[in-house]
C-alpha cells in the first residue's frame, strides 16, 4: 500500500495547485515568508517531497530484496 500512499500524497499536493488556481487564488497568493506566498511553498513541496519519497521507496525496495 505504501507506493499508492506516496503517489496519492504527491497527487494531493498537485490537486491543491490545480484547484487553488481557479477556486482560491487569493489564498495561494497569501504571503508566508519573505518573497514566498502559500502557492510558492506548495510548489516547492511538490518539487522536493517526491524526491524524498522516491529515495525512501528505493531504500525500502532494496531492503525487501535483501530479505
Amino acid at each position: 500500500m505504501l507506493p499508492w500512499l506516496y503517489s496519492l500524497f504527491v497527487l494531493a499536493l498537485f490537486l491543491v495547485l490545480m484547484t487553488g488556481v481557479p477556486i482560491f487564488p487569493e489564498a495561494l497568493s497569501k504571503p508566508v515568508a519573505g518573497i514566498f506566498n502559500l502557492g510558492m511553498v506548495v510548489f516547492a513541496l511538490l518539487h522536493t517531497v517526491p524526491l524524498a519519497l522516491a529515495w525512501l521507496h528505493l531504500k525500502q525496495r532494496d531492503a525487501q530484496k535483501k530479505d
Binding site: 507506493p3 499508492w4 506516496y6 503517489s7 504527491v10 497527487l11 499536493l13 498537485f14 495547485l17 490545480m18 488556481v21 495561494l28 497568493s29 502557492g39 510558492m40 510548489f43 511538490l46 518539487h47 517526491p50 519519497l53 522516491a54 521507496h57 525496495r61
Partner: peptide
C-alpha cells in the same frame, strides 16, 4: 503563477512511474 499546472504535472507523472509502474 499559473504556470505551476504545466510544471507540476511531470512530478506527479514520474512519481506514479517510480512508485507504481517501473517494476
Amino acid at each position: 503563477f499559473d504556470a505551476v499546472i504545466y510544471l507540476g504535472a511531470p512530478l506527479v507523472a514520474f512519481s506514479i512511474l517510480i512508485f507504481l509502474m517501473t517494476d
